[in-house]
Amino acid sequence: MSVTLVQLLSDLKEDETKKYVEGALEKGVDPARLLDEAKEGMNIVGQRFSSGEYFIPDLIYSGEIMKGVAALLESKLKEVRDTKSKKLGKVVIATVEGDIHDIGKDLVVFLLDVNGFDVYDLGVDVPVQTIVDKVKETNASVVGLSGFLTLSFEAMKKTVEGLEAIGLRNKVKVMIGGGQIDGRVKDFAGADAYGLDAMEAVKLAKQWIGG
């Protein structure tokens, strides 16, 4: 049996992946099917990351390969993508107010996405109100707060209080993470859990939402 797109992408073979997709399109293979296969490949990348086989550079590189695949398929796919795939649940993610660091947050967003969650990434330096509004609007069941600096301890606490103030606190689970975050900060902020690495966010979300 010949090698599949799923294998090529999950083994991070950039050139071969591109050639495969180009060849398949020429042969008239349904681009939507190719996109599904590529996503399956990304899913395997996520699994390999969680099992410790892959590291952050592998994740980032897989994202680059996926971007290339998406660029090839984009013009052929008339239908809006993503409508068919069923999502596990909604997660709102933000780096809290005052902090503009995004590397850790972006990794969490990436991993939640490849693991099938519907992720609303609000970016960095996000005010409490913006987070609260988004949770209300989307009915998300998990909120992830990121922060690299010590100022984030207080900002996380205020965000949790903001959720409390409009009666949403017991409808969502709050997870926090970032440079100096530990159990003490979790208690201080009133979060439900904290994670020391990006995979922890996926484990927590799965535990809370299921999937």
Partner: peptide, 9 residues
């Protein structure tokens, strides 16, 4: 000696 210890403990 961690930041959280110095700030919150």
């Amino acid at each position: 000696v961690s930041s959280s210890l110095l700030q919150l403990a």
